[in-house]
Amino acid sequence: MQPPRNRERDVLLLLCAIGLLGLAYLAWCAIGWFGVGLLGLLVVFLAVRIELEGNRPIGPQMTPDLHASQYRAEAGFDHAERANRSAERGVVASTARLASLFGGGLTVVGFGLFFLL
């Protein structure tokens, strides 16, 4: 059974969508449809990067030792802590997927109208 919907998350989603549309309008005023497409690519890039990192700490270099130490630290967690981390990663992943959807829409609309017009 899924937990009940959180109104705060819906309000923040709406505010972020309005902010992204405002940035898209500014990009359209500055560069045209090409700017909207670039903004969409930027949003997709950031969303995919966040989803790939999985809300884990990152060092100055992405080394195997960094990932191994993170997994060793998580191996010592009890069941409740592992469930909490898993739920946090799920929230971050769903938000990143939604952001990549918005960014993909901006990319398609921006570059599509740039090439059509």
Rank of each mutant, 00 (worst) to 15 (best):
Gln2Ala: 13
Arg5Ala: 13
Arg5Tyr: 07
Asn6Thr: 12
Arg7Val: 14
Glu8Trp: 11
Leu13Asn: 04
Leu13His: 04
Ala17Arg: 08
Ala17Cys: 09
Ala17Lys: 03
Ala17Asn: 11
Ile18Leu: 15
Ile18Phe: 05
Gly19Met: 05
Leu21Phe: 13
Leu21Val: 09
Gly22Thr: 07
Gly22Phe: 05
Leu26His: 09
Trp28Gly: 01
Cys29Trp: 10
Cys29Gln: 15
Ala30Tyr: 08
Phe34Pro: 00
Val36Lys: 02
Gly37Tyr: 06
Leu38Asp: 03
Leu39Trp: 01
Leu41Met: 15
Val43Ser: 00
Val44His: 04
Ala47Asp: 02
Val48Thr: 05
Arg49His: 08
Arg49Glu: 06
Arg49Asn: 07
Ile50Arg: 14
Leu52Ala: 15
Glu53Met: 08
Gly54Met: 02
Gly54His: 03
Met62Val: 13
Thr63Val: 06
Thr63Ile: 04
Pro64Thr: 06
Pro64Cys: 03
Asp65Met: 12
Leu66His: 08
Tyr71Arg: 15
Phe77Val: 07
Asp78Cys: 04
His79Thr: 14
Ala80Cys: 05
Glu81His: 09
Glu81Ser: 10
Arg82Ile: 07
Ala83Gln: 11
Ser86Asn: 08
Ala87Cys: 05
Glu88His: 15
Arg89Glu: 08
Arg89His: 07
Val91Leu: 12
Val92Met: 13
Val92Arg: 09
Arg97Ile: 10
Ala99Arg: 00
Gly103Asn: 00
Gly105Arg: 01
Leu106Gly: 04
Thr107Trp: 05
Val108Arg: 06
Gly112His: 04
Gly112Cys: 02
Gly112Arg: 03
Leu113Gln: 10
Phe114Met: 11
